[in-house]
Write a protein that binds this DNA or RNA. Structure first.
Lengths: 188, 188
DNA sequence: CCTTATATTAACTGATCAGTAGCTTTACTT
DNA sequence: AAGTAAAGCTACTGATCAGTTAATATAAGG
């Protein structure tokens, strides 16, 4: 029942899932890497799916905290914050262990809409849209939801491009595009 | 050595990989579904990786043929063709078995840049950028490569959004954004 | 008809998959 | 110190993983 131990397991699992994928990561491997025994692992998480969901929950919290804070730090106005998101993405892409978006990968491996893992992944993205929309509204957008959806497309596209390594600087491509979309949406 | 038999195997494998993922699809399952024996399968493809690469090659050809033709059919001018891409995407998203982009999923499951599967997936996207760039040039864009990269971001973002089901009509969101980007890039 | 090369087969390899059974250690209560 | 309950462990389950072995069916060439 010690929460810290469980959290530690989730943290480690998150890293391994991110690095190697979900199906490719066996419970045995996780058990070996965490040093815990199999039975203890299954006392904390009744099935692999539980562990995956816990890892996604942690990542959701981590990522949102990081992104939102970075947007606030780098942008002084609502419009500036939306643009600053792409500067944040650039930093993320440059990080050593960057391997794309965990939620995308989770949804790719667990494809059914009804799958809890898929739902959790979709939920994360929906929260982001809501957040973008709030800022877009404060920025004075006529249709903040629409702008938020467009910016999300750029963000997701940039992540894909970065993960595949097909363009040199997808974050800045997205940023340039975002500026144009913002100019349109904010009527200036 | 009969090519038709091999092609038949690749076609079936493509479907199963697309539906269930790569790691989640065992060779035994493919063997069972195709009716062929294990040894025959391994005579055609010396390893699972070979089969995956063959499936990606087929999909690359299939998808490009379909998309490029649809763009030509739906758009009469270079600019119109670029916009028509998103109408094509909308049709694709609405197809019954749509489950996102196979190359994205392949790259998500085989993450190392040096992995042949990852390289093949990245190659597909690179070809698309080149194609978009050619059209952008004919459309009169000042920086056709830059425009092509931006449109790719929208396309990939729309695919992710459609796969996760987070927005109602990602193709049309992307189309609206593309029109704005085109207006900017074509100076009108 | 007989030989030889090619396809195809079922049955197997050791490794790994997710998950469990049964026993031992630890830690807390009295 | 004795009793109790939680948490730990090793060792196992049957299923499935990718890939192979050795034997059988099929075909063409002499």
């Amino acid at each position: 029942m010690r929460p810290s131990k469980r959290d530690e397991l989730v943290e480690k699992a998150l890293l391994v899932f991110y690095r190697h994928g979900f199906h490719a990561t066996g419970m045995d491997k996780l058990v070996a890497e965490t040093g815990i025994s199999k039975t203890s692992m299954y006392k904390h998480f009744s099935a692999k799916e539980d562990l995956i969901l816990a890892a996604l929950t942690l990542r959701d919290k981590q990522f949102r905290r990081w992104l939102f804070r970075r947007m606030e730090q780098l942008g002084s106005t609502p419009r500036g914050q939306l643009i600053a998101m792409f500067d944040g993405l650039k930093e993320w892409f440059a990080q050593e262990g960057f391997q794309g978006c965990l939620f995308m990968k989770a949804a790719a491996e667990y494809q059914k809409f009804s799958d809890p893992i898929h739902m959790k992944s979709a939920g994360h993205k929906s929260i982001l849209i809501g957040y973008f929309s709030d800022i877009a509204q404060r920025a004075g957008a006529v249709d903040p939801d629409s702008l938020a959806r467009r910016l999300l497309l750029l963000k997701e596209g940039a992540i894909v491009a970065a993960q595949l390594g097909i363009t040199k600087n997808p974050a800045m491509d997205a940023k340039a595009a975002a500026k144009i979309l913002l100019a349109d949406a904010l009527g200036q």
